[in-house]
């Protein structure tokens, strides 16, 4: 049963992510990425990490992909993405070879080294305690400081996002209103002259 689920989800995830990487249409790529994220949540459920699976669906598919969808409104991405490539085959071959080389070179020294190595669990999973409960215990005791730091980081990122995207964030709002009014009056006078 586990094997069926594993192979099904692997095939689906790999297919989805391959579409993301090769597709010309940004909308297709985004939809495939959202699908792949949901299938990855399936692996988390298989690995007894229910809470992480739910977080994966809510945060990644719900928040991150929604943010990308909003971002894509700015970019006019419904038509095919034109990528300025001089030679397609050379690029694909080089990218593929470099990928294989990088992954093999980094993973090969570690591949056989730690097989059968017994590690002592730092935060052991206790039988009979649910995953969410266990995550809560560990997150609010052992990882409390990183948790708070992550909260601050998210706050900073939120403010940065707002300040970057909104055009007039660096100006005083009351000054801005006065400016707008002045502009409107000027326009009105101009129209009057013409009338």
């Amino acid at each position: 049963m586990e094997a069926i689920a594993f192979y099904l989800f692997s095939a689906l995830t790999i297919a989805m992510f391959t579409i993301v990487v090769v597709s010309d249409n940004a909308l297709y790529a985004m939809s495939a990425l959202a699908g792949g994220m949901i299938f990855i949540a399936g692996f988390f459920f298989l690995l007894d990490a229910e809470f992480l699976g739910v977080v994966q669906i809510i945060v990644y598919t719900g928040a991150v992909m929604a943010l990308y969808a909003f971002g894509m409104m700015f970019f006019d991405t419904t038509r095919a993405v034109k990528e300025n490539v001089e030679n397609k085959y050379v690029l694909n071959t080089l990218a593929g070879l470099a990928t294989v080389f990088a992954v093999v070179a980094v993973t090969a020294p570690f591949a056989g080294e730690h097989v059968g190595y017994v590690l002592e669990a730092v935060a052991p999973i206790i039988d009979g305690v649910g995953n969410s409960q266990m995550v809560g215990y560990v997150l609010f005791t052992k990882y409390l400081v990183p948790f708070e730091l992550a909260a601050i980081m998210l706050l900073v990122a939120m403010i940065a996002g707002i300040v970057l995207v909104s055009k007039t964030m660096d100006k005083n709002i009351t000054m801005l209103e006065a400016e707008v009014q002045e502009e409107a009056e000027k326009d009105y006078k101009k129209d009057k002259i013409w009338i």
């Binding site: 994966q56 990308y68 971002g71 940065a160 996002g161 995207v165």
Partner: peptide, 14 residues
């Protein structure tokens, strides 16, 4: 996941 979420917020803004 938290790092990825904040990365998207700042990156998309830029």
């Amino acid at each position: 996941i938290a790092v990825a979420a904040s990365e998207v917020a700042v990156g998309l803004g830029l």
